[in-house]
Design a protein around this nucleic acid. Structure first.
Lengths: 219, 219
DNA sequence: TAGATTGTTAATCGATTAACAATC
DNA sequence: TAGATTGTTAATCGATTAACAATC
């Protein structure tokens, strides 16, 4: 690491980043079992992966182990919480209080993972004024004003896919910096806006493709 | 392509596969607008990507275009439906009729994408016997029998994460071939079982990390 | 000490990107 | 025809995997 590098934390690669929460959940289970240390090979075996990948991933997160002993489970958990920003909570607004939106509003665990949904928005009058998971459902017309006043940075989109782009546009106009998009469509946004998709259609495509391939092989 | 290749369709790479549904949704919109042909560059511009990637992805799906004209929108849609197996519907059981499970049960669009959820299972007596999205919620004790009798191949897991592995185990024991897992934990399964994860925690990790990085840069 | 395990450096592999040829 | 656009082959880049050194 060069002394000219003011920012000495290297960015963690996305594939690694996506695996870290899975290690985290796994290690929380190990911690409960009371085991104080664990080796890469042990983790790898439990998680159907290779010791090398585990070691690289943990290294990227900043973990340090001891030869012959392995990694301290509690230290690992702490390091992962840090790398994943679990201690650094952001507030979020959710737009679209349909089935999926309501499911997300009910996920109180998100608060442990750095995401606090503070309100939902919808355009359906029969939903406006209700509460889901203890969070108010407000008129989407108020979104702009509230994003500005409360300086909320994260917007969650769970509207029907035809309204995705327009919802994203209003979020961005109001000052939202990061969008968590659950619709299966691409969002057009300026480069400085973070767009992260949870795309069930993509995931289903991979599943179906593998299953169809498997069935083809059987013939 | 060698004449010795009995199976002349090359497997589509997973990153490409994940992008295909997004093209599909996009092209459905283009089709509605009435435009008959479209070029890679046009698609790329609308989707914040590069013409080269679009061309490669469409090529992998089996599309053919005409120089100077582009690709026929309707032909593309047809080819994507084929590559994604949308015409080849599989039946599925869902286990865990909580918030997220209920949201998925309500997604009738899945049926257009090759997935037909025919029943849900839960262990909560107050849910058993009810209906969600027109689908019955049954006692999870009946899962094994019904998977066998109805020869269902896909299992969807939307149970709390502590019960994920055990749910997967019963699915596999009953003969499920592919698991669509919405819990943030790794599932241990034999190699011949397909496991596809929709991991919100992974996605959130990427989002938070980028946002934290952005905020760090602002200082 | 010996051996297990981490740490580090190098090799491989595959996806992405680029360059250029073919063609309508 | 000329130029836009696809098709194809090569180069690059980054993640994964492997090899080996360091160390408790």
């Amino acid at each position: 690491m060069s002394p000219y590098d003011s920012n000495d934390k290297k960015a963690i690669a996305v594939p690694t980043l996506r695996r870290l929460p899975v290690y985290y959940y796994y290690l929380k289970g190990i911690e409960k079992s009371g085991r104080p240390f664990i080796s890469c090979s042990h983790i790898a075996q439990d998680m159907n992966t290779t010791p090398i990948q585990v070691r690289k991933d943990l290294e990227a997160a900043g973990a340090e182990g001891k030869p012959k002993v392995g990694y301290s489970v509690s230290a690992l958990i702490c390091i992962l919480e840090n790398a994943l920003g679990y201690q650094n909570t952001h507030e979020a607004f959710l737009v679209g209080a349909g089935n999926l939106g309501r499911a997300l509003l009910g996920y109180t665990v998100f608060e442990e993972y750095g995401l606090k949904i503070i309100a939902a928005f919808d355009n359906n009058p029969s939903l406006i004024g209700t509460e889901v998971g203890g969070k108010p459902v407000l008129d989407v017309a108020r979104l702009d004003d509230l994003v500005r006043r409360m300086n909320v940075k994260i917007g969650i989109i769970t509207v029907p896919y035809e309204h995705t782009q327009q919802t994203a546009d209003s979020m961005i106009a109001a000052g939202i910096k990061a969008i968590w998009n659950f619709a299966p469509v691409h969002i057009k946004a300026p480069e400085n806006i973070i767009v992260q998709n949870v795309n069930m259609a993509s995931s289903l495509a991979v599943l179906s493709n593998k299953l169809n391939e498997m069935e083809r092989e059987e013939n």
